[in-house]
């Protein structure tokens, strides 16, 4: 589904992503972990075409990432998700629906279903500036789910959510995965990643230091947190 081939990103002399190669298969729930500044968000941004690779290639279903055709299959929730403050939640979702090729009653129905799914019914007519961080995040997740994308790319999706909100997101993602869709989850919350993901990569200083199935990385009597700390201690003694 997604292939990263020797992907490198440099900002001047600083290397943000350093020769990452990996393939995410269709239906895989892939967790991207790493400390702050490891290059996770840069990698995600390159996948969406927001940032260009200095070297290497990223492809989604064979199409170069960054092309508008490849984004047709993608739903994206940004790390610091923002909604234009002058839009209401429903207007925001209707705009996303329009760009997903939905219009009229189909768009209204799809938006209604999404509002129900992300628990934002009743707040959809409020302007975005009235939303809390959690509400903005829920709307962002709703927008990412619109159009039934093949691939969901989520950058810190539960940031700002209370425990109930986190549980709701987990249920939504599990449902999404059960429909055979692919998810890339970039998160600091190791417990969430451990619960949800099939495969995990730990990134540090722009490189993948570990990449494998979760069951092969986390051994008995260990948590993902232990694995994470162990690898980073080796990398940063």
């Amino acid at each position: 589904m997604i292939s990263f081939e020797n992907v490198t990103k440099k900002y001047g002399n600083r290397v943000a992503v350093d020769g990452v190669s990996y393939t995410v298969d269709k239906g895989e729930f892939f967790g991207l972990l790493g400390p702050n500044g490891a290059g996770k968000t840069t990698l995600v941004r390159m996948l969406l075409g927001f940032s260009r690779c200095t070297a290497g290639n990223i492809a989604i279903d064979g199409l170069p990432a960054g092309r508008s055709e490849s984004r047709k299959k993608v739903g994206y929730l940004a790390e610091l998700h923002r909604i234009p403050p002058y839009l209401s939640g429903v207007e925001y979702l209707m705009r996303h629906a329009a760009f997903c090729g939905l219009s009229g009653s189909r768009a209204k129905r799809a938006v209604g279903e999404i509002l129900e799914r992300v628990g934002m019914n009743g707040s959809e007519k409020k302007k975005a500036f009235q939303y809390s961080k959690g509400m903005t995040q829920r709307m962002g997740l709703g927008a990412a789910l619109l159009g039934n994308p093949e691939l969901l790319v989520l950058d810190e999706p539960v940031s700002g959510l209370d425990p109930l909100g986190m549980r709701d997101v987990r249920v939504i993602l599990e449902e999404f995965k059960n429909r055979g869709r692919t998810i890339i989850l970039n998160s600091h919350l190791l417990s969430e990643v451990e619960r949800l993901c099939d495969t995990v990569a730990i990134m540090n200083k722009g490189r993948f230091v570990v990449k494998d199935a979760l069951s092969r990385i986390v051994h008995a009597h260990e948590t993902l947190e232990d694995v994470f700390i162990r690898h980073l201690e080796v990398e940063n003694p």
């Binding site: 984004r71 923002r82 909604i83 234009p84 705009r95 760009f99 997903c100």
Partner: peptide, 18 residues
């Protein structure tokens, strides 16, 4: 760029020139 409208458009199948 500041209010998120740019990401809203460009995370969808919209080309930059469009």
């Amino acid at each position: 760029r500041d209010d998120g409208a740019m990401v809203m458009f460009l995370s969808r199948s919209v080309d930059r020139w469009q």
